[in-house]
């Protein structure tokens, strides 16, 4: 096995789970996320000479997987009526039938976030990208990333707050 192959094998071993978790938070369905991430890793392997030199190869994989998801939704647009094609790609495909080892309450709260906030949460918290790298990946400014993050955390906090805390005495 040559060095390039060994290098990719190590990258796959150390990054596959965090990439899958990041894409899962964005798309909401584990089977779909795994399919997208597998294809993205295959493309990374095919271009490893270039991707291996990227400053954040895991971010490259996630971006490729999310772009592939956009392509899937664009192909399905004729079959499904979409209110706004611009956000169609980010609509979560929650699969109730698939047994997923995720916290269902938190996942449901994440899926209730607007698409962009969900992407920021995924990249910042799961993939652990910094604000600047997240901004660069999403094509928005760092300030916008911070704003989305703040709103997302506020919404999640409100959604996940224990019931008894909601009944605070006046």
């Amino acid at each position: 096995m040559d060095n390039q192959r060994l290098d990719f094998a190590e990258f796959y071993r150390t990054s596959r789970d965090e990439c899958l978790r990041t894409v899962l938070v964005s798309v909401g369905d584990q089977d779909t996320a795994q399919e997208l991430v597998a294809e993205a890793f295959a493309r990374a392997c095919a271009s490893w000479r270039t991707v291996g030199r990227h400053p954040a190869p895991a971010a490259w994989v996630v971006r490729t997987a999310l772009n592939a998801n956009i392509s899937r939704w664009r192909r399905r647009r004729r079959e499904v009526s979409m209110r706004d094609p611009g956000v169609a790609a980010d609509l979560p495909t929650i699969s109730a039938a698939s047994a997923s080892p995720v916290d269902p309450r938190i996942m449901a709260a994440l899926m209730r976030l607007p698409a962009r906030q969900r992407q920021v949460v995924a990249l910042r918290l799961i993939l652990d990208l910094d604000t600047n790298r997240t901004a660069e990946m999403l094509g928005i400014t760092p300030n916008t990333v911070m704003a989305h993050m703040g709103r997302a955390l506020a919404a999640l906090r409100g959604d996940l707050m224990p019931e008894r805390q909601k009944e605070s005495p006046s």
Partner: peptide, 9 residues
């Protein structure tokens, strides 16, 4: 909590 919600994946 968010990070731990997907550690089983």
């Amino acid at each position: 909590a968010v990070r731990e919600s997907v550690t089983g994946v």
